[in-house]
Design a protein around this nucleic acid. Structure first.
Lengths: 154, 154
DNA sequence: TAATTGGGTACCATTTTAGTCCTGTATAAA
DNA sequence: TTTATACAGGACTAAAATGGTACCCAATTA
């Protein structure tokens, strides 16, 4: 599935909600109501987003959460990283040299490249895109430049 | 992390190993030895790949597993789908209309587009690419076409 | 017919994830 | 200054997914 965790999903929804009404702090309770999710869970999500510097918080009455910067400078990759850590398809594409099977593996280099391409893609999608009702237009993939595969199929 | 499951990772490694020595059946035990993973686990992985029609198997003495088709016509997306089901970033981007929060969500459409873009990317990476020692060259991402985000930041 | 090799299933241990709760602290308004 | 509001941090529990193993059956070939 290559799926995002549920909390990451919530984070995106909540961030989008805030992005649609900037310049005003949003209390956790208000956001929970708006997106129809349990308050404690939304609260936990918000705390993680603050820790990752995607939101800023204001305590006390009339306090709440606001975007730390503009919606167009926050990316999907930022949100995913905040909730789940660095975007990496395989464990070995996250931390180099920590896989003792590297010698017999033979695919790690290429998985790293795939990871990087996905990361680039996710960095090109901003919160502004996600929050917009207008569908985003993602780039059509260019075909992979052909490489020598003769050594493989021979 | 957006990580693949460990079994998917194994599947890629095993598939690559077979791809490097086609035209000859590979017994599970032999593959397990080659990639340095426990036999039962490799065996389980192989069975799943057969079920997904990526490998064909031959029982009996001198039997084993071979690619069901050429390495260049098997994609990373195929392998991931075989092990984890359809590539989808969110649950709602997999099956339409099964999320009761859709009305308050507001980002599902755009996640679906992101999912699709990742799927396209993974479909452009073949087993031949993964198995090759030559690094694959993934396309440079084109910048996203600008869309109206005024409605968001206003 | 015996040895080899995959097929299917069920099971268990572990890890990860999700969700909740509690106590503390900062802020603003009355 | 007091009080209500709202975030901060961490501990804890329940549930689910994952990974790994074992067992017995079926097919094939020498």
């Amino acid at each position: 599935m290559l799926k995002l965790s549920r909390l990451t999903d919530y984070a995106a929804v909540v961030m989008a909600q805030i992005a649609r009404h900037p310049n005003k702090p949003h209390a956790a309770a208000e956001l929970a109501e708006a997106v129809q999710l349990p308050h404690p869970t939304v609260s936990k999500t918000l705390k993680m987003l603050v820790k990752a510097d995607l939101l800023v918080s204001q305590r006390g009455a009339q306090g709440g959460y606001q975007l730390a910067r503009s919606a167009s400078s926050i990316t999907a990759a930022d949100i995913i990283t905040a909730m789940e850590g660095p975007v990496a398809v395989t464990t070995c594409s996250q931390a180099e040299g920590e896989c003792e099977l590297a010698s017999t593996c033979g695919v790690s280099d290429n998985w790293q490249r795939v990871s990087m391409a996905i990361r680039t893609l996710l960095e090109s999608v901003t919160l502004a895109h996600l929050a917009a009702t207008t569908p985003i237009k993602l780039p059509v993939q260019l075909p992979i430049q052909s490489i020598s595969v003769e050594a493989v199929s021979a």
